[in-house]
Write a protein that binds this DNA or RNA. Sequence first.
DNA 1: TCTATAATTCCAGAAATATGGAATCATATA
DNA 2: TATATGATTCCATATTTCTGGAATTATAGA
Lengths: 114, 114
Amino acid sequence: MESYIAVGALGALAQEARLTIFRMLVQAGPGGLRVGAIGKALEIPPATLSFHLAQLQHAGLVTARRKGREMIQVAAFERMNELLAYLTKNCCGEDLQACAPIVCKPTPRRRKKP
Amino acid sequence: MESYIAVGALGALAQEARLTIFRMLVQAGPGGLRVGAIGKALEIPPATLSFHLAQLQHAGLVTARRKGREMIQVAAFERMNELLAYLTKNCCGEDLQACAPIVCKPTPRRRKKP
DNA sequence: TCTATAATTCCAGAAATATGGAATCATATA
DNA sequence: TATATGATTCCATATTTCTGGAATTATAGA
């Protein structure tokens, strides 16, 4: 990961409302959350919420897809893991063994029918 | 870790110069680096560098100790690990097994005389 | 097509951050 | 004590980010 990407992602998370939103999305998993649900839960005015979601999307930490007239926001686990990897890179000098690997991922769902 | 602490730490890292400085300090390990050495390496004017170091210190990501007329800056590995833990908390819903633990630490030094 | 709902964009003012020269503070050494 | 060096603080300016009301866009359903 290039440093300017990391700076962008860190900046996107460096704000109370956005950090909260992102954590909600991580918890929600791949199913994501509707913008309205987020706004209702956090009591953020629509314009402000859109602004924050745009910041997270621009940083690559969140993706959005339309579902009817609603927008579903989903955490970008891959980008987040790249960020975590970037932050812990070079932590242990040459002794890579000393660093535990980092993985952030949604709870695996059980398959419906085996 | 409380969210406002995390926001502060993320904000401190969300700037090119500061992220670079922090990574230099992580690489340098517990021995840290002199302010002058950092400034020389990155070619940042003294006032600007002091400002950025103060931000990192205020966020708890760096500590400083005086050595003669020089100030030694050291990465705060513990705080960084708390931040990483905070960021990956709730990643896997209830299935905590699915998340790898995160540890960022300096390269362990060999003891001088056994 | 008309209406209602969900969300974004536009805009302007407020607030927080970044930058760096000049002055100041802290320590070492002659 | 005088001088030099390393670093911080002061301060003014520039830049970026945040906020939210009003207008606009997108889609669903009557």
